[in-house]
Amino acid sequence: MATVNIAGKDVEVDEEGYLTNLADWNEDVAAYLAQEEKVEMTESHWEVVNFLREYYNEYQIAPAIRVLTKAIAKKLGPDKGNNKYLYELFPYGPAKQACKIAGLPKPTGCI
């Protein structure tokens, strides 16, 4: 496991950069991970990240892209619950990239 220093705190990440301890997550960690992913966080990005964290707390699983789009459409509306919108925010894979920034495990089924 690798360790990165974020805002003066050592945080363990796996070989792909996902947090190994979900309790290490906070907004500083998210900002660091977003910078590593070359994502400039906006209110829309935070909305998806916070949605993912709520989803994970409820279901104890990081959703794959199909589940993610359906769940976001149900909660935030069809304008936001579609692949085009989510890929504009997270171009390297909305489920994979957004889950990493949210401090969640890599979704099952993501390569």
Rank of each mutant, 00 (worst) to 15 (best):
G77K: 07
R66I: 11
A31L: 12
E47I: 02
L52D: 01
A31Q: 13
M1Y: 08
A7T: 10
G109Q: 07
A71C: 05
E54Y: 07
R66C: 05
P78S: 14
S44I: 06
V67G: 05
P91Y: 05
E37F: 04
A31G: 04
P105D: 05
K100G: 00
K74F: 09
D10Y: 08
D28R: 00
Q97V: 09
L19F: 03
E47C: 06
V29I: 11
K9C: 09
D10E: 15
L22C: 04
A31D: 08
L89A: 02
K70L: 14
Y59M: 09
A2K: 14
Q35F: 04
E88V: 06
G103R: 00
W46P: 01
G93W: 02
I65M: 06
Q35V: 02
A62G: 01
T3L: 10
E88H: 09
L86Q: 05
T69R: 12
N50W: 12
I6S: 01
T108N: 14
P91G: 10
C110M: 12
D24H: 00
K70E: 15
F90K: 08
W25D: 04
D79E: 14
I65K: 03
A30G: 08
T42Q: 07
E40I: 12
W25T: 00
Y87W: 09
K9Y: 10
E40W: 05
N82L: 03
K80N: 11
N50M: 12
I65S: 09
L22D: 04
I101H: 04
